[in-house]
Design a protein around this nucleic acid. Sequence first.
RNA 1: GUGGGUGUAGCUCAGUUGGUUAGAGCGUCGGGUUGUGGUUCCGAAGGUCGUGGGUUCGAUUCCCAUCUCUCACCCCA
Length: 431
Amino acid sequence: MALNIKRPNGTEDVTGKNIEKWNTIERTVKDVAKEFGFHEIRIPTFENTELFHRSVGETTDVVQKEMYSVIAKETEFTLRPEGTAGTIRAMLQNSLLNEALPQRAFYILSCFRHERPQAGRLREFHQFGVEMAGSALPSADADVILMANTIITQLGIENVELKINSIGCPKCRANYHSALKAYFENKKDELCETCLSRLDKNPMRILDCKSPVCSEIAKDAPVILDYLCDECSDHFNKLQSYLKTLNLSFTVDPKIVRGLDYYTKTVFEFVTTDIGAQGTICGGGRYDGLIKQLGGQDTPALGFAMGLERLIMTMENQGIEFDEPLGCSLYIAPMDESAIPMAMYIAKEVRSGGFQVEFDTVGRGLKAQMKYADKIGAQFTLVLGENEITSQTAKIKNMQTGEQIDIELNEHISSEFSDIMLDNLFGDILN
RNA sequence: GUGGGUGUAGCUCAGUUGGUUAGAGCGUCGGGUUGUGGUUCCGAAGGUCGUGGGUUCGAUUCCCAUCUCUCACCCCA
């Protein structure tokens, strides 16, 4: 079919069996969030552009080249590129931080970034995220990391590495930046072009460069962990000991540098090699300065986000089973038009017992109806013709065994069918 | 934003060294004597060969452009 309007590049439709993949993940994520005391929050899809400039940061790639911004009625809005900024804004605007602290919020939402799509990267993608505001202690970091780990484990995902790092507070980071700059200044001639431009803006990004030359140079660069102030260093040490207590294996990776400006102290990622180059399925960290930055009281906070598409990809590639949808319980096959009223009536009655019921609405012959019933996985079928209507009895056919059971066509049909279903499910145990 | 690959039926792919009505398997729909599916048999529908130009008597095949999808860089979930 020549369809002239297609979905925008980098977006996805979710249909058919894929819906169950999403449901599986959303269910798991919500269950775990509940166990950890997090409450769902829903926020707008777009915000005033200024919000992202102030939180994500003016110099970040996300703000500089990836945001979908529009001016509408003289106000500049942006489709959210991530969930933290809007969530914190909502916490402030709804005075949630004046209530019992810490506040724990989670969300499932779509994000928008204008990048070239590739494996594990879309222009509209979905995140499950959590934000916890009001706790400064490393035990909060450990709890949040445990939560991410619990979700990953509960989904059955394997081959995931937890990497943690501390990027310090603004105080110790300033010292580190100057040390880094000094180091790279000496090797200026060898650095790649992009790294040269990073030298002034954000020297920590050079550590992450994939160019063989740069990464070779970066090997001997000063490490942030050596420049942490006492407080940050203590925080990081305690976090590590807590993670050990929780039996979470992790590696300290000084190259973990988050690309959003609001991060402080702890940063972490859960990474897999099973889904291509974009292997970070969960990323997060602490952002102690953000709430004040957005006009609130100085309140420490932290959080993480998981890419739902990446979780699904990982599960697919690892051969993990998703929840099965409930199929059709009963298919009713009217022989001809005169049986349709009875078919509709029975369908209505049996549905009232909570069962999924279908009947023919396209005028198929009996054989074709049976084929259709088989195709949709109907557990039972019921044929309605002249005989059934005059005798007010019919046979219910079990599509798996072929066995036929007599049933009365009256107002008790719903509970009778219910008995048949129960017997079908638990008959072996009961008898 | 940069680079590589790709584009023939709903899906997976053949094919034409440029030449009349472009094929297969799967899927969809119908039928195999008038009331029963999964196997099998028969049949049907479905493609302006990604789009727009150019070369040619003639292009799905050659050339150019463009778009799509895809992978990687970058960046991030």
